[in-house]
Amino acid sequence: MALSQKTKETLLGPLNANNPVVVQVLGICSALAVTVQLKPALVMGVAVTIIVAMSNVIISLLRNTIPMRIRIIVQLVVVAALVTLVSEVLKAFAYDVAMQLSVYIGLIITNCILMGRLEAFAMTNKPWDSFLDGLGNGLGYAWILIAVAFVRELFGAGTLLGFRIIPESWYVANGGFYENCGMMMMPAMALILVGCIIWAHRSLNKEEK
């Protein structure tokens, strides 16, 4: 499918040039919390993508009927309803994942990216564009989460998605030379990693500005 220039920008912009995490610095809180391991980061990324895209569409459909004075409340109700739905569905069909993410699913409601996209985009754009915008922003958020989680799980635990990458025999405990980096397990390390990504991103995109 050929995408028009505008569609392309809406969908792909948030992945790089206008990334919600590294450029707009939104959603940092959950980026710290769920990136110790790759699996919760993946599920969180998917859940946020689905919820941003769907709430964007719903708000966009309702945009001409929403009274201005209570628009934030209406947005919040829509987001909260979707988050509750996702949480209920996960509990029914993917109980392990739901338990692992526990409170973070509920905390999607407070993710600034959602309210940001609803306010800045969905309130003034058509449903299809809003859908693409939500998809793009969700994926833009997801890939940062996955990148951070990849580094943290690999160096913090020597595994990826629970599979051992760094051989047991390398460890000091087994007579080797290697030890996991305990710092990677701390939330502060996620902040440092996000900082590094922002740094790399800015220096790569310098000429475009």
Binding site: V36, Q37, P40, S102, V103, G156, A157, M185
Partner: peptide
Amino acid sequence: HESETPGL
């Protein structure tokens, strides 16, 4: 556990 730090 409900929400202990993964890895710790």
